[in-house]
């Protein structure tokens, strides 16, 4: 039996030297909810490099799914920019944006609702090829068969409709569709959350393999810390639409710096009765995104908060270890550690 925490990823090429494929700058998304303004995403900045898997974690209301959609321009941001391979998405025409979609794709949480129930899964896998390539019908069919094989979906399923497949098989269909045009970035929005454990493992295997063989970058959005830890190179932790910590997976999971990250990690239950739990149960509730706190968003629940934490929003700054950044003024004086 293995100790928990020995599954760190190591990659051959240093990720920091690779070209950024996607950059989000000062991203803001506000929703109008019955006259009030809901601040879903607040000044978020991050970069995804070629072939890198970035895990985005946070609890409900943290804005992680919204960010996933903003990044692909499925939602329009209130302000800020998303740049994909040097192109500012907001400046593109509808046509140019559609063409660019061949290079950036998405896999959703619930494969049952992400597929057209009245179209064969083979046609749905081939749809991006139909839209973005000039392949003939027979060439497309061959490609679809290869894709099915790639995601280990038996070819006999291709002529069936989604209702005839299981959840795991449907998620494989969604993944095949997402990689059909060999995109450089795939956003995965909770891709394994609705699946059973053993099915989930198969999908994770597949994603790791696709990254290895196709070099596709991924934004892996999930609330499941175990899964994110397993697959990600870098982690972004969100709280109330703001990045509180960002850094290499090993560092963020091994020695979380921000008090919220520490509390989040401590609530995770590894499936090993012998693993010691160092729990810090958070008091109170997440503040409303309609009335955002002025200072640090986490100050109201933070056990190590100082009065000045509520004065102004702490900047996301380098902590000095590798390329980790965190938004907590207590890191400087070493008072950020929770008593776990």
């Amino acid at each position: 039996m293995n100790a928990i925490g020995d599954t760190d990823q190591t990659t051959a090429t240093p990720l920091a030297e690779r070209r950024p494929i996607l950059t989000a700058r000062d991203l803001v998304k506000e929703f109008d909810v019955g006259g009030a303004t809901l601040h879903a995403v607040n000044d978020v900045n991050f970069t995804i490099r070629q072939g890198e898997i970035v895990g985005m974690v946070g609890e409900s209301g943290s804005g992680k799914s919204t960010i996933g959609r903003l990044v692909l321009s499925l939602l329009k941001q209130t302000s800020g920019d998303v740049t994909f391979d040097g192109e500012n998405l907001a400046s593109l025409s509808d046509k140019a944006l559609r063409a660019l979609r061949a290079r950036m794709q998405i896999v959703f949480q619930d494969p049952w609702s992400a597929l057209n129930p009245r179209m064969s899964v083979g046609r749905q896998i081939g749809e991006p090829l139909l839209l973005h390539t000039n392949l003939s019908r027979s060439e497309r069919r061959q490609r679809v068969e290869r894709l099915a094989e790639r995601v280990r979906l038996p070819a006999k399923f291709l002529s069936r409709t989604p209702a005839e497949l299981s959840g795991g098989q449907l998620q494989r269909v969604c993944i095949a569709r997402a990689i059909a045009t060999e995109p450089e970035l795939v956003v995965l929005d909770e891709p394994t959350s609705s699946l059973d454990l053993s099915v989930r493992a198969g999908i994770l295997e597949l994603l790791a393999e696709l990254r290895r063989e196709l070099g596709v970058a991924m934004l892996f959005i999930s609330h499941d810390l175990g899964t994110v830890k397993l697959i990600s190179d870098r982690i972004i932790v969100l709280y109330l639409g703001t990045i509180v910590e960002e850094g290499p997976a090993s560092l963020v999971f091994g020695a979380p710096a921000h008090p919220y990250t520490q509390a989040l990690m401590s609530a995770h239950l590894p499936p090993n009765p012998r693993a010691p739990l160092k729990r810090h149960v958070l008091e109170g509730e997440v503040p409303s995104p309609i009335n955002l706190p002025k200072g640090c968003r986490f100050a109201s629940r933070c056990p190590v908060a100082l009065p000045e934490c509520s004065d102004s929003l702490p900047p996301l700054v380098a902590t000095g270890e590798e390329d980790r950044r965190a938004a907590c003024i207590r890191i400087a004086d070493g008072g950020n550690r929770l008593n776990l």
């Binding site: 959609r69 692909l72 499925l74 559609r98 063409a99 979609r101 061949a102 794709q105 998405i106 959703f108 619930d110 609702s113 992400a114 597929l115 057209n116 129930p117 009245r118 179209m119 749809e127 991006p128 839209l131 973005h132 969604c174 569709r177």
Partner: peptide
Amino acid sequence: SSTMVEAAKAAGNPTWRIVMVHLLPN
């Protein structure tokens, strides 16, 4: 507002195709 239509949009479908191929039959 369904995921299915969002997925069709993300795949790069133009509006007419979303309406005719994905919405109409459903």
